[in-house]
Write a protein that binds this DNA or RNA. Structure first.
Lengths: 332, 332
DNA sequence: CCAAACTATGATAGCGCTAACAGGTGTGGT
DNA sequence: ACCACACCTGTTAGCGCTATCATAGTTTGG
């Protein structure tokens, strides 16, 4: 930077100002400086900038898995929105393990993020206290937690799943099975299960057919392996609601291999409205969630938080609702 | 840090040393310091550390899209491997646009990454020169470029696709169509198309049935829309090779909707061996690539590069091959 | 027993940038 | 002519760490 300053005949401070777009520099000086910047191929050091200004320019985002189109869309939308304000995203993947989340947060806090975005799946006590102690604003997404840390951009997985089950009850189904996860305390998966079971109980229908098949995420592959177990234990099952679309697709394909008519003999539903659910034959009934909107709105919220900080105030707890609506398709 | 030092009765420098695991500090001093660190909940500032030590601890990774299980797996494996050495990944998604890659690289270089990983899809002249000027080591993945920037961890998309086509020719197919991307200069997609066409020409088969359907990535949805166009233009087609598995799946489902027997009437093949290809009914013929291995080996290479740097030398250009093998399944 | 070598710790000086304030110049109002 | 004010630029002093060298204490070996 001092090289640039010398050649442009100004002080380093003026170079620094010329490189921002809201600093008071005369038009001609800025142009002269930027010309030298281009000539020299000077690349400002944002670590140093962050240290001096106490603004790292980072936002930490924790998702359970990268390998999930939904979280990818959310992160993508968030990344793009924050980029408009010069913020960069640091991604961590927890693999659905709260302990891993804790460890990742500890690492991330060293980067002095300006905000933390957490995909709700329960947090350890240590995670909560680390975040609180750091004073960094937090946004929880993809759920409306009972005990939110601070801001929320999400929907009730329980209510959404309940509403799906209710529609299927209305459609005449009576013998439900739920294919879900094991190890799912305080997760979105357990909320979905709870929602389905609540609907069944409210309609006086049997609610005992719950298969806790494997730790999250349940893959397509595991969906294919779960079907025989369901058929064996509860041959009277009329419809299987799966914790998410990929395992619903696995169940569907296994039905096809076994020549079980869907929905004639067995109906299948998922959760999330992944692209595959609309494409597969038959198309899969599911709950549609706008994953991109979650990322976008979380990003907008973070910009609001920063704007408030500039004015010296802390934004009140926000809770931004996201729509999650059942979509009945051919598979039911 | 100076608070910790004062309470532990040592100098800040000793605290700094105690927090690393290879620095010369007596066991008892380190324990005393770490105890105070825990008591105070002190979190070291890695921006400051990076500035002082000239090691940011960042590795930049560019992928075309996050919303692609393959790149997600590659990034995941890379992230985990680098984490073992305390390195953190900065992810950028180019959306398959070289100009966007250029813009992202410019941003990323401000973070002073210790290495750059690029998923090959062609680079602008400016990208190449920025990277060269920065002196940061580069690893290109998912392809073996003709003009590599430096290191490579990948395979020949051309050869892999050619080998798939050859197997299908051996299996008796004669009338091939290729469903690929538009705007695909210097991309993995164009290499795959070239490989297929080379196989056809070598076998004296017609190579004119090439549909450049849309800019990458071609989605499942677009696969369903491409099928009618292929059938209309070239009704004699016996097999469609798709640039990647998702669009092959789209083609397959559209065949099912139109009651076109696969593979009886039309065969379908993809590229990449996504989970869906092994699960769908019929299972889809494809080229299997170990996406995680690419991430893992790229990570190991980066650790080698750093180890060499410590010894004051620059690692010779490495080119680490990845296997990509055709897998014939039910769809052909 | 003493030089040489090694270990643990401290003091000093930055890393590359920006916040905060100081100062100089020009403009317009009175 | 003077003051108030806006506008632009420079000076100074860090941000929170670590590299490097210095130093004191301890061990080793001939």
């Amino acid at each position: 930077m001092s090289d640039v300053a010398r050649i442009a005949g100004v002080s380093p401070m003026t170079v620094s100002r010329a490189l921002r777009n809201n600093a008071p520099v005369s038009r001609e000086t800025r142009e002269r400086v930027l010309k030298v910047v281009r000539q020299l191929g000077y690349v400002p050091d944002q670590l140093a900038s962050g240290l001096a200004s106490q603004r790292s320019g980072f936002v930490t985002v924790m998702v359970p898995s990268l390998n999930n189109p939904h979280f990818a869309e959310t992160v993508g939308a968030l990344t793009d929105l924050l980029a408009t304000a010069g913020l960069q995203v640091l991604i961590g993947h927890t693999e659905y393990q709260p302990e891993r989340e804790e460890q990742l947060i500890a690492t991330m806090l060293r980067r002095r993020p300006e905000a933390i975005v957490l995909t709700y799946d329960g947090h350890t006590r240590a995670t909560r206290s680390m975040i609180e102690a750091s004073g960094v604003p937090v946004v929880e997404i993809w759920e409306t937690p009972r005990r939110p840390l601070e801001h929320v951009v999400g929907f009730s997985n329980r209510d959404a799943a309940r509403s799906l089950a209710e529609k299927l009850i209305d459609a005449g189904f009576r013998q439900f099975a739920f294919l879900g996860e094991s190890d799912d305390k305080d997760t979105r998966g357990s909320a979905r299960r709870a929602g389905v079971l609540a609907a069944l109980r409210a309609a006086d229908l049997p609610d005992h057919r719950v298969l806790a098949f494997a730790p999250p995420p349940i893959t397509m592959q595991q969906g294919t392996r779960a079907l025989p177990e369901i058929l064996e234990r509860w041959p009277e099952t009329e419809v299987v609601i799966c914790v998410s679309d990929p395992c619903a697709f696995g169940v569907l394909t296994e039905c096809q291999r076994r020549r079980i008519a869907v929905p004639g003999k067995l109906a299948v539903a998922g959760f999330g409205d992944f692209e595959i659910s609309g494409i597969s034959v038959p198309a899969i009934t599911t709950v549609a969630v706008d994953a991109q909107a979650i990322g976008r709105k979380a990003g907008e919220l973070i910009l609001d938080i920063r704007a408030a900080e500039m004015r010296g105030v802390r934004l009140d707890r926000q809770s931004i609702p996201i729509h999650a609506v059942p979509v009945l398709r051919e598979s039911t």
